[in-house]
Simulated assay, not measured.
Amino acid sequence: MNPQELEKLKYPIGQHHEHLKFTMEDVSSWIRDIAQFPQQITSLTENLTTEELNWLHRPDGWTIKQLVHHCADSHMNSFIRFKLALTEDTPSIKPYYEDRWAELPDSTIDDVSDSLMIIAGIHRRWTVLLNSLSEEQLHRTFYHPEHRKETNLGVTTSMYSWHCKHHLAHIEQALAHKGAF
């Protein structure tokens, strides 16, 4: 596989582009994406066999089950980052090694039902929180030590809208290729 094909498999919807300027209409669209994600990921994965859950989404990538478990982990972290930014002045958040988390025993089990429940619960609460934010609150920030920069909640909302679609596309890709690359 050539580098361009590998890049397309890694980023099937393209890479995220930061929206440093955004409107409340943009934010509403991103919130809808976040709100719809639990139903979409559940629809794609709830009836998969153990074999299918173990299909890779690209060469040297994660399995479908690891993608589901990763979304639960990642979105829990993001939800907490929102709450920190809303209750503290530019808190420094705790980065984590998502690749290492994806190899832990709870991220490699074949049963994804607990992660789907986590996603459903987090997204319900996250959506309530997001829908309550004023434009001023969307400009509250947290500091990301790994990236060495402040990020506001509006930009982060955009990122997680993309993140939802990005990993849904990975799962669809794994299913289309039957995990064979």
Rank of each mutant, 00 (worst) to 15 (best):
S107F: 06
F79R: 03
L133H: 04
R140N: 14
G154D: 11
R100F: 15
D110S: 13
H144I: 00
H144T: 00
H144F: 02
E136R: 01
H163C: 06
R58I: 01
D89P: 04
D106T: 03
K94V: 11
L130S: 08
L153Y: 06
C164L: 05
E52C: 01
P105L: 04
R100K: 14
T151S: 10
T156H: 10
R124Q: 15
E146A: 14
E103P: 03
E98I: 00
S74A: 15
K149V: 05
H170L: 04
H57S: 10
N131Q: 11
L130T: 00
F142H: 06
I109F: 12
G121C: 09
S107C: 09
A169N: 05
R125E: 15
A72D: 04
R124G: 13
W101H: 11
P59R: 04
N152A: 04
G61A: 02
A169D: 07
T108H: 10
D89W: 06
I122E: 03
S107L: 02
N152H: 04
H166A: 06
L168H: 04
K94F: 13
F82L: 10
L116C: 04
S161D: 11
S107K: 01
H70Q: 09
W62F: 05
L116Q: 05
P95E: 12
Y96V: 06
T63W: 09
F79H: 12
K149G: 11
R124A: 14
S115M: 02
S132M: 09
S107P: 01
N152E: 12
M159Q: 12
D111M: 01
M159E: 15
C71H: 09
S113M: 04
S158R: 00
I109M: 14
Y160T: 02
H147T: 02
E98W: 05
A169V: 00
A120Q: 15
H144P: 02
N77A: 12
I118A: 07
D106P: 07
H167W: 07
